[in-house]
Design a protein around this nucleic acid. Structure first.
Lengths: 133, 133
DNA sequence: ATATCTGTTATATAATATATATAACAGATA
DNA sequence: TATCTGTTATATATATTATATAACAGATAT
């Protein structure tokens, strides 16, 4: 798992980290049951604060993507991943609607937009079933 | 143009307003050259501050979606709408990648995801060419 | 001309979000 | 015992968001 944070980005660090961890799970780089670095360790490696990493872990735990074993520490959800909840569906619709509208106004055709969507889905899960790098 | 702001949402008011104006242009409810309410008027109608509306207008103007005529006030871009810039392309990829990854992890198939993308594109521009309500 | 409306700018304030810093706690581990 | 774990508490600094009040110059209508 290579994690790269953009300190210049307007996207909060804890959110960038959450996204990259989910992308790691999607790609197979992070498999169910895999241990994650401790909050202190990862924070030091990324050059950020312990609490920023802890916030990402805590939110991902609340969403069901991570679990905390008193023994093993933080691990990728070993059982069933969370499904398509109403909350996620709402977020998906809200964000896709904004992106689709702007794409349309900018002259992007439906096919170009849909093709881009399909490509990005395919890219993120390309490694699934492989050895996870 | 019906604009509804969610005061509970974590999405900033000025961003909600920007999104809905772009969606209005995409749907055809707002046509090139159409006048927009004054910042004071719209602010009062929405029950928010003048500067919040002004921020939305200013950002949309910077992006090329709106123009300010010293005479006509603020109007929808009457000439060519902005195209698919490198900046928009980057935003599109960044946001779609995060959404696609989470959708995949939650068990949403590529077809279900792509279908949702196509549907939302179609919905927003459905009214194009019509009388724009 | 007077009054009113326009976008725009300046200044100030309050609330919230983000990120860091330091410290401590209980449970697990070597 | 010493060290590591996630977790919680407290404090601070900065940036973002939203509001409030005021003023300016250009345009419009009475």
């Amino acid at each position: 798992m290579f994690i790269e944070l953009d300190l210049q980005s307007e996207t909060p660090l804890y959110e960038q980290l959450m996204n990259q961890l989910i992308e790691g799970i999607a790609s197979g780089a992070l498999k169910p049951g895999d241990p994650l670095p401790s909050v202190r360790n990862l924070a030091e490696n990324l050059g950020i604060n312990l609490h920023t990493v802890n916030k990402s872990y805590t939110l991902l735990k609340q969403d069901g993507f991570l679990q905390v074993h008193r023994k093993k520490g933080v691990v990728v959800q070993p059982d069933a991943m969370p499904g398509v909840t109403a909350e996620f569906e709402a977020k998906l619709v809200r964000q896709l609607r904004s992106l689709a509208a702007e794409a349309a106004v900018r002259g992007m055709t439906e096919e170009a937009f849909v093709t881009q969507c399909r490509k990005l889905y395919g890219d993120t899960i390309m490694k699934r079933g492989g050895d996870g790098q």
